[in-house]
C-alpha cells in the first residue's frame, strides 16, 4: 500500500474512531428522556433541520438516540477490549516464550476456548443467565482471547530468538521483565492496539446482532444501535430513514475500528 493512501485511511478511520469515543464519553452527560421524546404526530419524519436524521416510528429523534445509543456498547466494548487484549497478551507471551509443559497447558486452554462457537455460546449464556450487556461483553472478551493470544504468540516466537533478546537473557534479566517490557511493551504495542480495536468492533457486532435476533441486551425505551435497527426493519417499506442511519453507523464504526487497527499495525511494520 502506498504511503498516501495509508495516511488518508489512517486519518479518516482515526477521526471516526475518535468521534465514536467522544460520543461514548459525552453521551452519559446529556440528559435524555426517551418517554418524553415520543411524539406520534411527527413519526417517521424524513431528515430536516429539526431532526437531523429524521424521527422513528414513535416520533423520537434518531440523531439523539444514535448519540445516546453509544452508551450501550461503549463501556462494555472498552472493558471487553481491555480484558481480551490483556489476557490474550499474557497467554500469547507465555506460550510463545516458554517451552515444555507450561506452553502445552496454555495452548490447550486457548484451543479449548477456540472450539466454542462464539455466537451460539453467547446465546446459550443469554438463555441461562440474566443477559446484561456487560455480561455479554465479558463472554465475548473471553471468547476472543485465543485469537489475540495467537497473534502475540507468533510475534513473541519470532522475537525470542533475536540476538538482542538473547542478550537480555544472557544478562540475567528476569523473564517477566523481558516479556512485559522488552517484548510486549516495546514491540507488540501496535498489534495490541489492533486486537483491542477488533474486540471493540466485535462487541458492537454482538450487541446489535443479539438485539436483532431476540431482544437481548439493552431494552426499550432506552436506545441502543441494535434495538434501533431491529425495530426499524419492520417499517422499511414505509420509512427507511430510522433503519438506514443506525445501520450505516454500525457499518462505518466497525469498518473504522478494523481499518484503524490494521493501519496502525501496518505502519509500525513498515517503519521498523
Amino acid at each position: 500500500m502506498g504511503a498516501s493512501t495509508g495516511r488518508l485511511g489512517l486519518w479518516v478511520s482515526g477521526c471516526i474512531v475518535a468521534l465514536v469515543i467522544l460520543a461514548g464519553l459525552a453521551a452519559p452527560m446529556i440528559p435524555y428522556d426517551p418517554v418524553a421524546d415520543v411524539n406520534l404526530d411527527g413519526a417517521l419524519a424524513p431528515p430536516s433541520g429539526d431532526h437531523l436524521f429524521g424521527t422513528d416510528a414513535q416520533g423520537r429523534d434518531v440523531a439523539m438516540r444514535l448519540l445516546k445509543g453509544t452508551e450501550a456498547f461503549f463501556l462494555p466494548g472498552l472493558m471487553a477490549a481491555a480484558l481480551a487484549t490483556l489476557f490474550g497478551a499474557v497467554a500469547g507471551a507465555v506460550a510463545g516464550y516458554f517451552q515444555g509443559p507450561i506452553r502445552s497447558a496454555v495452548l490447550g486452554v486457548l484451543q479449548l476456548l477456540d472450539t466454542l462457537p462464539r455466537l451460539v455460546f453467547i446465546i446459550l449464556v443469554c438463555t441461562i443467565l440474566n443477559p446484561s450487556i456487560l455480561l455479554i461483553a465479558f463472554v465475548a472478551a473471553i471468547l476472543f482471547i485465543p485469537a489475540n493470544a495467537t497473534v502475540i504468540r507468533r510475534k513473541v516466537e519470532a522475537l525470542a530468538s533475536e540476538d538482542y533478546i538473547l542478550a537480555h537473557v544472557a544478562h540475567g534479566f528476569r523473564p517477566a521483565r523481558i516479556l512485559v517490557y522488552h517484548i510486549l511493551w516495546l514491540q507488540c504495542r501496535p498489534l495490541l492496539i489492533r486486537q483491542a480495536m477488533y474486540v471493540f468492533g466485535y462487541v458492537l457486532f454482538v450487541e446489535t446482532a443479539l438485539a436483532y435476533l431476540g431482544d437481548y441486551g439493552v431494552q426499550e425505551p432506552a436506545p441502543s444501535w441494535g434495538n434501533m435497527v431491529a425495530q426499524a426493519k419492520e417499517l422499511f417499506g414505509i420509512g427507511a430513514w430510522p433503519w438506514l442511519f443506525p445501520a450505516v453507523a454500525i457499518v462505518i464504526t466497525i469498518a473504522s475500528f478494523l481499518a484503524f487497527g490494521n493501519l496502525v499495525a501496518r505502519r509500525a511494520e513498515e517503519t521498523r
Binding site: 500500500m1 502506498g2 493512501t5 485511511g9 479518516v12 478511520s13 468492533g201 457486532f205 446489535t208 446482532a209 436483532y212 435476533l213 435497527v229 426493519k233 422499511f236 433503519w243 445501520a247 454500525i250 457499518v251 462505518i252 466497525i254 469498518a255 473504522s256 478494523l258 481499518a259
Partner: peptide, 21 residues
C-alpha cells in the same frame, strides 16, 4: 487497485443482518 482498500473495509464490516436487509 489502491482505491479499493477503503471500500473493502466496508465490505468486511457489514454484519449479515445488515446485508440481509
Amino acid at each position: 487497485q489502491q482505491w479499493l482498500t477503503g471500500p473493502l473495509y466496508f465490505g468486511t464490516a457489514a454484519p449479515s443482518y445488515v446485508v440481509a436487509v
